[in-house]
Simulated scan of single mutants.
Amino acid sequence: MTAQKGRDLLLKTDSSGTGSFTTVAGLRTHALSFNAQTVDITHAESAGAWRELLAGAGIKSASIRGQGLFKDDASDVLVRQFMFDGTIRDWQVIIPDFGTVSGPFQVTALEYSGQHDGELTFELALESAGLLSFAAA
């Protein structure tokens, strides 16, 4: 992947559960991480006593973190309600010239902050809650 502007990464959600995605915020910082747990199958006869792992057996997960400004009052209300209700909804992370990661996520953290001479910002964390898909750009 070549160098790109960080602001081009978009975070969208299916606000109503009907498959229609809308951008919820103007994010200033964002991060998407993928994780896979390992399953250790090392035993007394493992070559040289080196650890052995079982291929494809661990739990996969993804996390999204972002900080920025809500697009509008409706976006603020929507994400806040998802947080309070523990709603699992489909989200999309669009990475230009790379692709789109889509699937169910749950809002696991929502924090508001601001300085006396600046705007109110928020920080949000999402955790995957099911099968994710990737569509190359």
Rank of each mutant, 00 (worst) to 15 (best):
M1Y: 07
A3V: 09
K5Q: 07
K5Y: 08
K5L: 03
G6T: 14
R7I: 06
D8H: 14
L9C: 04
L9K: 05
L10V: 14
K12R: 13
T13M: 10
T13L: 03
T13D: 04
S15C: 04
S15L: 03
G17E: 01
T18C: 01
G19A: 08
G19P: 06
S20F: 00
T22H: 02
G26P: 05
L27K: 03
R28P: 02
L32V: 14
S33Q: 15
A36D: 12
A36E: 11
Q37P: 00
V39T: 14
I41T: 12
T42N: 11
H43G: 14
A44D: 13
E45T: 09
E45F: 04
A47E: 14
G48V: 00
G48T: 02
L54Y: 05
G56L: 04
A57Y: 01
A62L: 11
A62Y: 11
I64Q: 10
I64P: 00
R65N: 13
G66L: 01
G66H: 02
Q67S: 06
Q67E: 15
G68E: 08
F70K: 04
K71D: 09
K71P: 05
A74D: 09
D76G: 11
L78F: 11
L78H: 12
V79K: 01
R80G: 05
F82Q: 13
D85V: 03
G86F: 08
I88W: 00
R89Q: 12
R89C: 05
D90Q: 13
W91D: 13
W91C: 02
V93A: 11
V93N: 04
V93W: 03
I95G: 03
I95H: 12
P96V: 14
D97T: 12
F98H: 03
F98I: 11
G99M: 11
V101E: 15
G103P: 01
Q106Y: 05
V107Q: 10
T108K: 13
T108V: 10
A109T: 06
A109D: 06
L110M: 15
E111Y: 00
Y112T: 05
Y112R: 08
G114F: 01
G114P: 02
H116A: 08
D117V: 05
G118L: 04
T121V: 02
F122L: 07
E123Q: 12
L124S: 01
L124P: 00
L126V: 02
E127I: 01
E127H: 01
G130V: 15
L132N: 06
L132E: 12
L132T: 10
S133P: 02
F134N: 14
A135H: 07
